[in-house]
Design a protein around this nucleic acid. Structure first.
Length: 799
RNA sequence: GCCCCAGUGGCGGAAUCGGUAGACGCAGCAGACUCAAAAUCUGCCGUUCGCAAGGACGUGCCCGUUCGAGUCGGGCCUGGGGCACCA
């Protein structure tokens, strides 16, 4: 934008106009930069002493079109990349596409198109839009994760992880839609029902592929301390997610069980009628306040009881309709059922406690069983009160009187002095925990233990549009890896997505899964699960360092030169999962010999940018009459002078389908309904209050200011904006309007400010050139196409 | 429900150690210049009472610590992100 104008005629024209014409300037410089190839990262041996700088923004999912909300992330990375280059760094600033995922299959199902075509079409459109922004990106390294040339390396790495013992198979719960006969993602479960079928969701257990993230739990936690260029909030979220807690395992001996359970137990070996129940607790100091044991609905013992108790079976089924989302499970009303088992208190064998199943106990944490100590835990207290289970307080807050302190509706979760607890009386919370564990060990009723919240990563997806898992199921040899020479296992393209053909298209494909066992040569079937798309994004940053490599995921030397990423920029919504998985994957790649990176940390510095938000607009429901409504070129009924669609009501004289009515009859429509749909900002005139539909006086209701999203239609399309105002206005606005880590609200007044600023900068330079003329060599170095020239422009840009 | 973050004029925000709340900017309004517009320049710009001088209130809410709180402590409220199959 500050670049001098070398072309005299053009300059004269603009000076006369005295106005910055982005429609000429921006394409011109984009073309020059592309021709000079200034954005190409240098190979290490070319760099000759330049320090490296790897700048990366979280790569986009190709959902369709880019709106100005997306542009902030890339603009921030772009500014850093240009600044580093101007400072003499060898900069790697690449771009690619996180291209596998559910939306492509949804589009395929809804519109009868192929996920592959949909995805690559979107990529083509979005690439052109991104280029309009004039980003300093090394496009020679572009790839999409759905390219077989990318995922074949992912398959090879999967096999390497498998050999290293980081891959295993395990039963996992999934959401099952009994009508569509398909596995549902959590977002596809709405109020406990499948989003398409509306049928109550069931949970099923499937044998799934797992990555052993917990093998690195200690290191993933400890290394957070060294990530000093990460935001504190992200480090805290990661620590909490890994969730290391010290506590105790306690084994509760069985006192009595229902007759049916005793009868079905074997005389020797493991038996639910005899084996103690294991629970994990961080508060063994409150053991004397125990009131009950609670098991997860899918605890093995609960399931066994359900075998002869229909009420327990129904309880399990009811819990299953909540789906697998932890948020849904914990928000549900706390309910439980007495399993008819009694256990002995570890410190007093004459004290018997009931064993319940409860919907708030998670089978995925600890042993899937807890002991309830109601006075010290709100959930336990609510549960005890609801089912009239007796309890007593055992922690006396500092300053409280033991004679009068009582717990009714509100638990006391803080620290204090233990009382009502025999040998623990008078101890502090901390001392009582140690003392209780000593006693448990002495009585062989428990032991100290470390518990992690972090679970292993289930990577199996029963979906088509993902990376095929390179495994073969053989009746004789079991599950065997695909030999590396047979990679890639490519997705078949002749698949169908009709709704009435349920399940995974890979699984029902007539030929694809049938193959030979690589071990015995007998008939065998391929694994039809594909990998979680988080796997694709767990190593793409390494692929960018050597994106064209055909024989390996990347050259070890190149990856070791560029990694770690010096500045990673992305949304805080990825603060836990994506970043944690990438940290795991990098360690796994290191330990499988792909990478020379002792720390195993992929991102040295992280920045989480704020969102771009915008007002939302909704049409207010009303009925319109014919003159204000007409049919546009596509045959849709719209409000005259707008693109807002309305629904024709059936004419009074005709009772059939409106689509069948002939022209004359259509003109006879008496009424059109404007439903309360979301409206895009360009359909709304927001200069009047209340805002109205553009070109009409129909009022619009203004909704909350939200993150720009397709579903709320509060998006400003990038193409149209750049055509009207230019990329620099868009870039300047998203950078200047608000601190980068905070949200920025896209407003007309903000755009005007950015526009005025760009104009002012332009006229400043224009005036300068007019008054003082060009300063010969210093303003325009002789080697105008060389790096010096580019560097000078970038310096100007960066100032 | 649990974990994390944010709340200050019309808007973005500033106030670095507890010491004049609203720097700076955007938008807006008024004026100058201009045939006119744009650009530029000047002025006004938290709410409220007042002719004015000046006063009162004011940093999401309540309570506390302090001579003094946007800032420190406790308790809330609202909005946003995440909760392991959206990406």
């Amino acid at each position: 934008m500050l670049s001098c104008i070398n072309d005299n005629a053009t300059r004269q024209r603009w000076v006369n106009m005295s106005r910055y014409n982005h429609r000429e300037v921006e394409p011109k410089w984009r073309g020059r930069w592309a021709a000079a190839n200034i954005d190409r990262a240098l190979a290490p041996e070319e760099a000759r002493g330049k320090p490296k700088a790897y700048i990366l923004e979280m790569f986009p999912y190709p959902s369709g079109r880019i709106h100005v909300g997306h542009s902030r992330n890339y603009t921030m990375g772009d500014v850093i990349a240009r600044f580093r280059r101007a400072n003499g760094y060898n900069v790697l600033h690449p771009m690619g596409w996180d291209a596998f995922g559910l939306p492509a299959e949804n589009a395929a199902m809804e519109r009868g198109i192929h996920p592959k075509g949909w995805t690559y079409d979107n990529i083509a459109a979005m690439r052109e839009q991104l280029k309009l922004l004039g980003l300093a990106i090394d496009w020679s390294r572009e790839f999409a994760t759905c390219d077989a040339s990318y995922y074949k390396h992912q398959q090879a790495m999967f096999l390497a992880f498998w050999r290293k013992g980081l891959v295993y198979r395990k039963k996992q719960k999934v959401n099952w839609d009994p009508v569509d006969n398909t596995v549902l993602a959590n977002e596809q479960v709405v109020d406990g029902k499948g989003w398409r079928s509306g049928a109550p969701v069931e949970t099923r257990e499937l044998e799934q592929w797992m990555f052993k993230v917990t093998a690195y739990a200690d290191d993933l936690l400890a290394a957070i301390g060294g990530l000093d260029k990460w935001p504190d909030k992200v480090r805290l979220m990661q620590s909490n997610w890994i969730g290391k807690s010290q506590g105790a395992k306690i084994w509760w001996d069985i006192a009595s069980v229902p007759e049916e359970l005793r009868a079905m137990s074997p005389a020797t070996g493991q038996s639910h009628a005899r084996d103690p129940i294991e629970v994990f607790t961080t508060r063994p100091d409150t053991l004397f306040g125990a009131s009950f044991l609670a098991l997860a609905p899918d605890h093995p013992l609960t399931k066994t009881i359900a075998g002869f108790r229909p009420d327990v079976a129904k309880f399990i089924a009811d819990c299953a309709t909540l789906g697998t989302s932890e948020a849904d499970i914990e928000k549900a009303e706390k309910v439980g059922i007495d399993l008819g088992i009694r256990v002995k208190h570890p410190f007093d064998p004459t004290w018997e406690l009931p064993v319940w199943a409860a919907n708030f106990v998670l089978s995925t944490y600890g042993s899937g069983a807890i002991f309830g100590s109601p006075a010290g835990d709100q959930r336990d207290l609510d549960f005890a009160n609801k089912y009239k289970l007796p309890f007593k307080p055992v922690v006396l807050p500092h300053g409280a009187d033991a004679a009068t302190h009582a717990i009714t509706d509100e638990a006391f979760t803080g620290e204090g002095v233990i009382y009502n607890s025999h040998f623990l009386d008078g101890l502090s919370t901390k001392d009582a925990i140690a003392r209780a564990i000593d006693e448990l060990v002495k009585r062989e009723a428990g032991e100290a233990t470390t518990q992690w919240r972090l679970r292993d990563w289930g990577v199996s997806r029963q979906r088509y549009w993902g990376c095929p898992i390179p495994a073969i199921h053989c009746a004789k040899c079991g599950v065997v890896p695909v030999p590396e020479k047979d990679l890639p296992i490519q997705l078949p393209e002749d698949v169908t997505f009709e709704r009435d053909k349920p399940g995974n298209p890979l699984d029902r494909h007539p030929t694809w899964k049938h193959t030979k066992c690589p071990t015995c040569g007998g008939a065998a079937t391929r694994e039809t699960d594909t990998l979680d798309t988080f796997v694709d994004s767990s190593w793409y940053f390494a692929r960018f360092t050597d994106a064209q490599n055909e024989t390996a995921p990347f050259d070890k030397k190149l990856a070791s030169y560029w990694l770690p990423v010096d500045q990673y920029v992305g949304g805080v919504e990825h603060a836990v999962l994506h970043l944690l998985y990438a940290r795991f994957f990098t360690r796994a790649m290191r330990d499988c010999g792909y990478l020379d990176l002792p720390s195993g940390e992929p991102f040295a510095s992280l920045f989480t940018q704020g969102m771009v938000v915008h007002e939302t607009y909704r049409a207010t429901r009303q009925v319109l009459k014919p003159p204000s409504v007409h049919q546009d070129q596509r045959g849709k009924w719209v409000i005259r002078g707008t693109t807002v669609e309305v629904t024709p009501s059936t004419p009074a004289a005709w009772g059939g389908d409106p689509a069948d009515v002939d022209r004359a009859q259509r003109d006879a429509f008496k009424e059109f309904k404007l439903p309360p749909t979301w409206l895009t900002p360009d359909q709304v005139d927001s200069s009047s209050r209340p805002p109205v539909i553009m070109g009409t006086d129909i009022p619009v209701s203004v909704g909350p200011i939200e993150k720009m999203s397709k579903s709320k239609k509060n998006v400003v399309d990038l193409d149209a904006f750049v055509t009207d105002f230019g990329a620099d206005v868009a870039r300047w606005f998203v950078l200047s309007d608000s601190p980068p880590e905070r949200d920025v609200e896209w407003t007309a007044s903000g755009v005007k400010g950015a526009w005025n600023f760009v104009q002012r900068v332009w006229s400043l330079t224009e005036d300068h050139v007019e008054k003082f003329g060009k300063q010969g060599g210093s303003a325009s170095p002789p080697a105008a196409v060389g790096a010096a020239h580019a560097l000078r422009q970038l310096t100007h840009r960066t100032i």
